[in-house]
Design a binder for these strands. Structure first.
Lengths: 145, 145
DNA sequence: GTTCGTGCAAATACTTTGCAAGTCG
DNA sequence: CGACTTGCAAAGTATTTGCACGAAC
């Protein structure tokens, strides 16, 4: 995706910072925090202020180019690729996260929201559990010996 | 519910602070933040340090007596009454929150989590929308004249 | 009397804001 | 050139921690 062109097309300035943040998110295919985005961009030898990260992700989320998700105490960002209705399964120990492709999950939710008089905006499903790795680590640690 | 007895029964000290926090949550039937809990207790003329609130809600959540939910940037707490599987519909404007009784929502999620190698712990569904009041206020505000 | 819990103060993590300087179109 | 962006520094909000005193059992 040519992010620079996309930004200009929408009437936003195509700055190197915006391009880098989008590229980093695109290549990571992960949910990154503002801090992680900053470090990833800086790994490319481009200094990037955290305020800029925060302001940029807000702008990009507003444009629908990226999606924000609160996990634990920080907000994580990811490229708003194809599947709109995917959610997150997070390990409560190590924070490892996998996506849950929850295709039709919001159908009933929409109905319920409308019944409550709300105009639906977003559905965020956050499932927590313990991943296999952490479970095995804990089992091993618990083994007497 | 006799919270003091419940606490002692489980081997925890039954302090007035714990009792008050539980009572406040029970009576509010709302999702309160740590700050709101503190203010509500203090409204009963009992000073209550915020650290104590945070430590207490963590303890009580660990005991399963209350439930924690992240809404926006702060964590909200509520009495862990009957319906385990209820979730939240929040107005993105005024933060008004209603419960969504999502009975069987986690059945499929459990299956998916297990398929991913996770042992399920919790399912949190956070739906945002615009409540009727806010929509009407905005419509009125937008009316030319 | 011991152990656990609380208050206080300071620290931490995450995020937001005001303002001057810099860049894009 | 002018509007939009960035960097910097400082502030703000939410939460956590160390420690000494105090309360519950």
């Amino acid at each position: 995706m040519d992010w620079m062109a996309e930004l200009r097309l929408r009437g936003y300035k195509a700055t190197p910072q915006r391009g880098l943040i989008l590229r980093v998110l695109e290549e990571s295919s992960q949910h990154l925090t503002a801090e992680e985005i900053g470090r990833a961009v800086e790994a490319r030898a481009v200094p990037l202020n955290r305020s800029t990260v925060y302001r940029t992700v807000e702008t990009l989320a507003g444009l629908g180019l990226i999606r924000a998700t609160r996990i634990g105490r920080s907000t994580h960002y990811e490229i708003a690729g194809g599947e709109q209705d995917h959610h997150h399964l997070v390990c409560s120990r190590c924070r490892a996260t996998v996506d849950l492709p929850l295709a039709g999950a919001s159908a009933e939710l929409t109905r319920m929201a409308e019944a409550a008089g709300y105009e639906l905006e977003s559905v965020e499903v956050l499932v927590t559990g313990i991943c296999r790795t952490c479970r095995e680590r804990e089992r091993t640690a618990a083994t007497p010996g």
